[in-house]
Computed example of a mutant assay.
Amino acid sequence: MEIKYIEYGTKEYEENVKLRVDVLRRPLNCDMDEEERAFEKEGAPIVGLYDQGKMVGAGVMGFVDEEQIEIKYMAVSEEMRGKGVGNAIMDELEDYARRNHYKKVVLVARTGVLPFYEKRSYITLGEAYEPGFVPVMHIRMEKELKE
Score class of each variant (00 low, 15 high):
61 M>D: 04
83 K>W: 08
134 V>Y: 02
140 R>A: 15
25 R>S: 05
129 Y>D: 10
137 M>G: 04
58 A>E: 00
96 Y>M: 08
96 Y>W: 15
76 V>E: 00
43 G>R: 03
26 R>T: 12
145 L>W: 05
120 R>K: 15
50 Y>D: 06
137 M>Y: 14
3 I>W: 02
29 N>Y: 11
95 D>Q: 15
118 E>W: 06
106 V>K: 04
81 R>W: 00
53 G>E: 08
98 R>M: 11
38 A>Q: 08
103 K>E: 12
60 V>E: 00
29 N>C: 08
69 I>S: 00
38 A>T: 02
145 L>Q: 08
141 M>Q: 04
37 R>S: 06
104 K>V: 12
85 V>L: 10
26 R>D: 07
72 K>S: 03
103 K>C: 08
56 V>R: 04
56 V>F: 04
104 K>G: 00
143 K>W: 09
134 V>L: 08
47 V>Y: 08
53 G>M: 04
112 G>R: 13
140 R>W: 07
73 Y>V: 01
129 Y>G: 03
91 D>K: 11
130 E>Y: 11
14 E>P: 00
77 S>Q: 09
28 L>Q: 03
48 G>D: 07
131 P>I: 05
81 R>P: 01
82 G>P: 04
110 R>I: 03
79 E>Q: 13
22 D>S: 04
117 Y>N: 04
48 G>T: 11
119 K>T: 08
14 E>L: 13
31 D>P: 00
137 M>H: 08
11 K>C: 10
121 S>G: 07
128 A>I: 09
123 I>Q: 13
24 L>F: 07
137 M>T: 11
130 E>T: 15
127 E>Q: 14
33 D>V: 01
120 R>N: 11
87 N>R: 14
133 F>H: 09
81 R>C: 02
146 K>R: 14
69 I>V: 15
8 Y>L: 11
102 Y>L: 02
34 E>G: 05
90 M>K: 03
2 E>W: 02
147 E>T: 09
127 E>T: 11
111 T>L: 05
2 E>I: 13
26 R>H: 10
63 F>I: 10
89 I>R: 00
27 P>F: 07
28 L>R: 05
117 Y>M: 11
146 K>H: 13
142 E>Y: 14
41 K>T: 03
2 E>K: 15
9 G>R: 03
70 E>T: 03
77 S>M: 09
123 I>L: 13
143 K>I: 04
52 Q>R: 12
126 G>Q: 06
107 L>Y: 00
133 F>Y: 15
116 F>N: 06
4 K>Y: 07
63 F>S: 08
64 V>P: 04
88 A>C: 11
83 K>S: 08
130 E>D: 13
56 V>S: 01
145 L>N: 05
140 R>D: 15
58 A>N: 01
119 K>P: 00
47 V>W: 05
35 E>D: 13
106 V>G: 03
99 R>D: 13
2 E>P: 01
51 D>T: 07
67 E>N: 14
89 I>V: 15
77 S>K: 12
114 L>R: 09
132 G>S: 12
50 Y>C: 10
147 E>L: 15
55 M>C: 14
36 E>K: 09
135 P>Q: 10
143 K>T: 09
46 I>H: 02
1 M>T: 12
95 D>Y: 08
16 N>A: 15
57 G>E: 02
